[in-house]
Design a protein around this nucleic acid. Structure first.
Lengths: 146, 146
DNA sequence: CAGGTAAGTGAAAAACGTTTTCATCTACAC
DNA sequence: GTGTAGATGAAAACGTTTTTCACTTACCTG
């Protein structure tokens, strides 16, 4: 499902939000990057085409886009700052390079059995989970050998 | 393995650190709590017995204890602030109540197969993973019904 | 068990990242 | 076009974490 202008407007409108040039620009920057980006990095990139935009607007826009499920957060490894990246389909997870920060998505985590067992043993009603693998990507493995 | 005074000193000394009353107090507070605690919460509790301690020392001590593997961080749900809690044995994960923040540990995650597949498919050398389940604990399920 | 020294401490201030406030502006239903 | 709820940008407030620096102390040496 491509995200046409019209569809985007309707997704926003459904919840009482509007499609502004700023929001379009933020979403575009995130969509065009294959990496996760900090709010500051997004700010910098959006400003190249949109010099007047304020960092505040970035934060507000990220909150809205995340609420609508159009983007999602990454807790990259040790550094706890929440990065953001484009979300392909529904439920998914991350494989993160601990050196260069590159992120790969994967979606089939097969945690259903574990989830059921934990729910039963602890009485929890489980709503979701966060799964991230940390390691070295192929490129960083090579450069580490040198 | 109980953490005797002597053993603790030796763990610290091995890396050039010293065992100060402040460090002992911080570790004790974390060890005695069954919950995860923010740096500020730890500060408050340590101050009850140790009024002169500074928040700076808490942060420095937490960094040292985490580096030594005596404590570990939790990325509780949406809020990304790194909480801390005592670490039982080695590898373990968290089951977090999204309402009251209660944390339950579990250790058998059985992710070996997935890890191998991801490593093979993406060329990553996987070093570790973060797995957290979010949900409602029994108490919060009850209070939600009211 | 004293003495010297590298390591640790506490206070204040700086440096962050993020949120709030408020006056102004604008997307969009009519 | 017009009105208005919603959005924006600048400045300031905020809370958390880090840095700096003078002073103190744990602990190795003899």
């Amino acid at each position: 499902m491509r995200l046409t202008e019209k569809k985007l407007t309707s997704i926003l409108r459904q919840r009482g939000y509007r499609l502004t040039p700023q929001r379009r620009a933020v979403l575009k920057v995130i969509a065009l990057s294959s990496d996760h980006l900090t709010p500051a990095a997004i700010y910098e990139r959006v400003r190249r085409k949109h010099p007047g935009i304020g960092l505040v607007t970035i934060y507000r826009t990220l909150a809205v886009l995340a609420e609508l499920g159009l983007i999602c957060e990454v807790h990259a490894g040790g550094s706890c700052r929440s990065y953001l990246m484009r979300k392909p389909p529904g439920h998914h997870h991350h494989l993160i390079c601990s050196q260069c920060g590159r992120v790969v998505d994967f979606s089939d985590c097969d945690l259903g059995g574990l989830e059921q067992r934990l729910a039963r043993e602890n009485g929890f009603k489980i709503e979701g989970h966060l799964l991230e693998f940390l390691g070295l990507c192929p490129a960083c493995q090579k450069s580490a050998q040198a």
